[in-house]
Design a binder for these strands. Structure first.
Length: 449
DNA sequence: CTAGGGTTAG
């Protein structure tokens, strides 16, 4: 995909690292440092070229076309890079209509490449093939591949774990997957200290908070000692599950075990104090952070302001927002969006608008989250015409409305019994294919950022 | 190359 641009900037960047000026003169024949990158550059150009040829052949696959034979005729040198690129292309092309074909063609190529060159598979290519099966709902085949990679001696990774877990529809099944990885001898959990932290972290990424609690219990049963990462993940899960009292209990345990809190720990507590509408304690914590040399940053203030906004304490939001600026932290898109959401929740549309204007003046570009908050505010104030023109606005500024933005508008229109306009917006959604969103939900929800 | 702040409503 982005291979072109990669090839172009890489030599320049490496040159910069070596202390060589980035202003390369193209006419300078003696400038031979670029030549040393040629073989590498050539290699990737070849891969790219061959990916196209392979895809072209796979696309023709059918009863009247023997694609394996055609692939053989190419007499390719099959490398891990080639396999990876082809599988990635297939993975990205999956839609709800071509699932069967993608799974079949992907696997055909996967098997064929393995027959050409023993060294062209690794954990990564297995993960990719498994991901293709996962997205195509070929779960049995995915499990078979997991066994195969283990038998062949490839280690499973956090990525493997995530792919398997995301296909589990029910909690019981997810627990089985977790058990398998905890006991696995071939689980490559680096760079984490032990597999428990790797698993806990993976679970955090895909929002499996109850499982985090369970894995933590297993970890204690097996006498592993938790570190600050373990505790932070656990507290984060407790926070998301609304078990605020237990977050404090974990903090107490951290102190008892002589583990030092870090910036993530503080962030979690700013979240808790904000949500609990406790600006006084928050202020003490901010002072404490500075004392121990952990200077609060935008994300810390944002966590706090988010909680306070939800709790309806706008005065405190504004106070900490100003304090942040005074501390030399410039608010970013997320922070502005949190402030706007706070005003919207409190029915302060004009203040929300002022924030929206301010962020643009300060060079922060509103994104889908920001527009969604503003549209929600306009709906709450019954300004549906303006809400709809804001939808047009965001589009013209290159920020395409997503499923959430449309839902905000449609739901509010329905609540206000403005059915014709609601239908109109829904038709637009359909025209953009956003109804298929539900079908693709599993594909995107768990994707790493 | 160890995570971290934001959206609908159910």
């Amino acid at each position: 995909m982005d291979f072109d641009s990669n090839l172009d900037w890489k030599p320049v960047v490496e040159g910069t690292l070596l202390g060589i000026s980035t202003q390369v003169n193209d006419d300078d024949e003696e400038n031979d440092f670029r030549h040393s990158f040629l073989p590498r550059r050539r290699f990737f150009e070849d891969v790219r070229f061959n990916v196209e040829r392979v895809i072209e052949i796979l696309q023709q696959d059918g009863p009247d076309f023997d694609s394996k034979l055609a692939l053989n005729k190419l007499r390719l040198k099959v490398s891990i890079y080639l396999v990876r690129e082809v599988l990635l292309r297939i993975l990205r092309s999956i839609t709800h209509l071509n699932k069967c074909r993608c799974a079949r063609l992907g696997f055909k190529f996967f098997v064929w490449s393995g027959e050409q060159e023993k060294q062209c598979h690794n954990s990564n290519t297995y993960n990719l093939m498994m991901k293709i099966f996962a997205d195509c709902n070929e779960l049995k085949k995915m499990w078979i591949l997991l066994d195969e990679m283990t038998i062949k001696g490839f280690s499973t990774t956090a990525r493997t774990f995530n792919i398997m877990l995301c296909t589990c529809g029910e909690a019981g099944m997810r627990k089985k997957v977790v058990e398998r990885f905890i006991q696995s001898k071939t689980f490559n959990f680096r760079p984490f200290k032990h597999s428990f932290n790797a698993i806990l972290h993976s679970l955090l990424v895909i929002n499996q908070y109850r499982l985090i609690e369970w894995v933590y219990q297993q970890m204690i049963l097996e006498k592993h000692s938790p570190d600050i990462l373990t505790y932070n993940v656990l507290m984060y899960a407790k926070l998301r599950l609304g078990k605020l009292d237990q977050v404090y209990r974990v903090l107490h345990e951290i102190g008892m075990n002589g583990v030092s809190p870090d910036l993530h720990t503080y962030n979690i507590f700013l979240h808790v104090l904000g949500a609990g509408d406790n600006p006084l304690e928050a202020r003490n914590l901010l002072i404490h952070m500075k004392e121990v040399g952990c200077e609060p940053r935008v994300i810390h203030f944002t966590s706090l302001i988010h909680g306070l906004g939800r709790a309806g304490n706008l005065e405190a939001c504004e106070h900490f927002f100003n304090e942040m600026v005074q501390n030399g932290c410039m608010p970013d898109v997320v922070c502005y969006t949190v402030m706007i959401t706070g005003y919207v929740v409190a029915n302060e549309l004009e203040k929300a608008r002022a924030m929206f204007d301010e962020m643009i003046i300060n060079g922060q570009l509103p994104n889908v989250f920001t527009y969604n908050a503003m549209i929600r505010g306009l709906c709450v104030a019954k300004k549906f015409g303006e809400a709809r023109s804001m939808l047009r606005d965001m589009e013209s500024r290159g920020c395409n409305p997503n499923f959430v933005v449309y839902s905000t508008l449609v739901d509010n229109l329905r609540k206000a019994r403005k059915f014709p306009m609601a239908r109109e917006i829904m038709r637009e959604m359909e025209a953009r294919g956003l109804y298929h969103y539900v079908d693709l939900l599993a594909k995107y929800r768990y994707r790493r950022r």
